[in-house]
Design a protein around this nucleic acid. Structure first.
Lengths: 107, 107
DNA sequence: TTATTATATAATCAATTAATTATATATGTA
DNA sequence: TACATATATAATTAATTGATTATATAATAA
């Protein structure tokens, strides 16, 4: 697989609104699956499957802490993605709203 | 549609190897449909339909010259795409090879 | 005018994909 | 131990998509 094809595969991952929003959220801070589920108001399997694609594509890495799996960005080896995330709309507010609600799934 | 969704739609366009290669070619110089067909060795309708998606997505613009339709990049309003194209593998060689062959469709 | 070349569009089909539903696994707690 | 919570995986389905084939349009050349 050549470099263009590799880049296309990365863009394919970015080309879904849910996944791009997840990445924008992780661009603020690492999050566990249940937090992402709460913020995006979708089902847990839906998020888990998107996380697997992002992990397989090398865009995120996971770290297990107790029963929670935290995901964080893993794009240091992809400078064109780094530049890109500087221009993505910040999701800071959505994450802060989550922290204020009583329905936090973890803490 | 919010900004994230708009960006995702752009990445969806970049997320196809054929289209990303077309854009990388246009990053060298404007080309007509038949040149792109020759370089990518695929069918004319295939390229025409990709060009339409790229045009609908605002990534390229066209200009008709006689019976030929030339396409060129139209990404000045998308800084994150501009940065990106600085890091895409150059397709200069493939375009030069085309010019050397006798089978040019236009000139 | 007729033929040729360049391009676009429409219809079809196979393959891919995102989301849902159901189930399994793993960790923590009573 | 039994139960609850967090996550992953598998199966299914509907929708989308890329490529092909066939056809239409437009410009040029004979």
């Amino acid at each position: 697989m050549d470099e263009i094809e590799r880049m296309a595969d990365v863009f394919k991952l970015l080309g879904d609104k849910t996944r791009l929003t997840i990445l924008a959220l992780l661009n603020v801070k690492e999050l566990c699956v249940c937090e992402i589920v709460d913020i995006l108001m979708t089902s847990q399997p839906n998020i888990s499957q998107h996380m697997r694609k992002l992990k397989d594509g090398g865009l995120v890495k996971e770290s297990k802490k107790g029963q929670w799996v935290y995901y964080s960005l893993n794009i240091n080896d992809k400078p064109y993605i780094l530049d890109l995330f500087k221009q993505i709309p910040s999701q800071k507010e959505r994450i802060e709203q989550l922290s204020c609600s009583d329905e936090e799934c973890c803490n």
